[in-house]
């Protein structure tokens, strides 16, 4: 009732304007999400027998799901700190470092503009051999642009007076940025980390094009490959349960990020 009263108090125009967006979200996100949950509890979508948590148990016990999960987490644990650190350094250099370098700012957007297929082809010329490095490098190279843009925007939004006050108190050099700049842009850094985590789950395209197969070397076999291959095998249940696991993983990571943000904001 309280919700209805609150709803009534809204301007009806607002509600009308929201309807298309809500409808789109409902049709394209909520319904598929519910269906995925449903599929994860049945034996297959042709016979549709309820099997409880069997699919979850099977998927979790599957050695290739474990391998994929491990590789996906490794990508997050190794690449994202490197990516964020690099992005912060570049942003600081661009914002407060050598002035001539600021003109090169646009170059960081280029990786986002070049088609992934071309990038993968070029990367193949650079990297050879059995190593995970090409995928990691490709991920960092591809995503650093957006991170730098976001962080640079946040840095330039800091009031100059704050720096002046800090300098008067004796802060300078790296200490200045460590104590002043970085804490002030912490929400943006957290947002950039979240964005990068989400992007890390989308590294499939680059990896697929680089290796040219649904079965890359074991070190690059991520959750997306696991899901894609099960899709081709018509195993919707493995696909659905691994999607749910991925969702849970992302929620945990988001919560950890928010927790960190809250802690450091204090």
């Amino acid at each position: 009732m309280r919700f209805l009263r609150k709803l009534k108090s809204w301007n009806m125009k607002c509600i009308y304007l929201l309807i298309p967006s809500l409808a789109g979200t409902f049709i394209f996100f909520v319904i598929p999400f519910v269906r995925v949950i449903y599929y994860s509890f049945i034996d297959n979508q042709f016979r549709r027998n309820f099997v409880g948590l069997d699919n979850y148990v099977q998927t979790f016990q599957n050695e290739f799901f474990q391998l994929a999960l491990q590789n996906s987490l490794l990508l997050i644990v190794i690449c994202i700190p490197v990516l964020i650190l690099l992005a912060i350094i570049i942003s600081l250099v661009l914002s407060y470092g050598i002035k001539t370098l600021r003109k090169t700012r646009a170059a960081f957007i280029l990786p986002m503009l070049i088609p992934t297929a071309s990038v993968a082809e070029i990367w193949r010329l650079v990297f050879t051999g059995e190593t995970v490095l090409p995928v990691y490098t490709l991920f960092i190279w591809k995503n650093i642009g957006i991170c730098v843009i976001l962080l640079t925007a946040a840095l330039t939004a800091i009031e100059p007076e704050i720096f002046e006050a800090a300098k008067m108190d004796g802060a300078k050099g790296i200490k200045l940025h460590k104590r002043i700049s970085v804490p002030l842009i912490l929400p943006t850094i957290i947002f950039t980390i979240l964005l990068s985590i989400v992007n890390s789950f989308r590294v499939f395209k680059e990896s697929y094009l680089f290796y040219g197969t649904n079965y890359p070397p074991s070190h690059s076999y991520t959750l997306q490959f696991y899901m894609n291959n099960n899709f081709l095998k018509l195993d919707y249940q493995a696909l659905a349960t691994s999607s749910v696991y991925t969702m849970i993983l992302v929620i945990i990571l988001v919560l950890v990020c928010f927790g960190l943000q809250r802690r450091y904001s204090r």
Binding site: N62, E63, F64, F65, T213, Y215, P217, S218, Y221, Y226, N229, N230, A238
Partner: peptide
Amino acid sequence: EFKINAYLNE
């Protein structure tokens, strides 16, 4: 080995 095992067991 990896590909065949993955295909058959994933």
